[in-house]
Amino acid sequence: MTRNKMTRMLSPVFLVALKKLKNAFSDLLPIILVIAFFQLVVLRQPLPQLGEIIFGTILVIIGLSLFVQGLEMGLFPIGETMAHALARKGSVFWLLFFSFALGFSTTVAEPALIAVSQEAADIAMQGNLINSDEVSQKNYALGLRLSVAFSVGIAILIGVLRILRGWPLHYLIIGGYVIVMLLTTIAPIEIIGIAYDAGGVTTSTITVPLVAALGVGLASVIKGRSPLVDGFGLIAFASLMPIIFVMGYGLIVFG
């Protein structure tokens, strides 16, 4: 009885927030279980600084629920609005320009990419592939970063062009795989691992929802395109293209 009364008293907004928090908690539960299992059962050590861990976990849960709420309210609608407005304007040039700029600008300042390219410069220096002074190391890291950002820009551009033209995705992706394998046979060994990883680190948490909404939005306004079949695939290009460009960069710089 009291429970019913309480439910009625809670405002709908509060209930929605509570549901979001509950969802975020279940998203996080596997990590908590894995860490607890390995810490207590396998390594048999007590959890250090339990207070900080609980505090951090609460922050993660609140943050994740806010993020998901923000996705629904902000990021998805922005991506779709831009897709609709650009499609209505009917200028292919501006649409492709926007796509390239979106890919390039979100990647070039990506912290994960900056970290990876610096590490790659260290490795190249250890392998005596570049001169071991600070200038050439910096140039190498910057060149790597720019080529990855450029490749993501090109990737989104090609992906959007594919949605416009209705090209089947799998031919393009499989063609990309073939290029990756061919480049692997001739690229210097020091760059292969980094090149493969570069594909994964480029797509950040804010870029992915925006790009997904852009693709789906475009596919749903263009006649004859299905949002499910044609709307997805932009992220696939954005993870494949950097592999090709980084190996190409390695070949040009070391070759």
């Binding site: 951090g56 629920s65 806010l66 609608p77």
Partner: peptide, 21 residues
């Protein structure tokens, strides 16, 4: 408002991860 939620949410998320996990 949605954009602000995304930024604050992501920042809290990352801060929590760096603190705890």
């Amino acid at each position: 408002v949605g954009g602000v939620f995304v930024i604050i949410g992501l920042a809290l998320f990352l801060a929590g991860l760096e603190k705890a996990l």
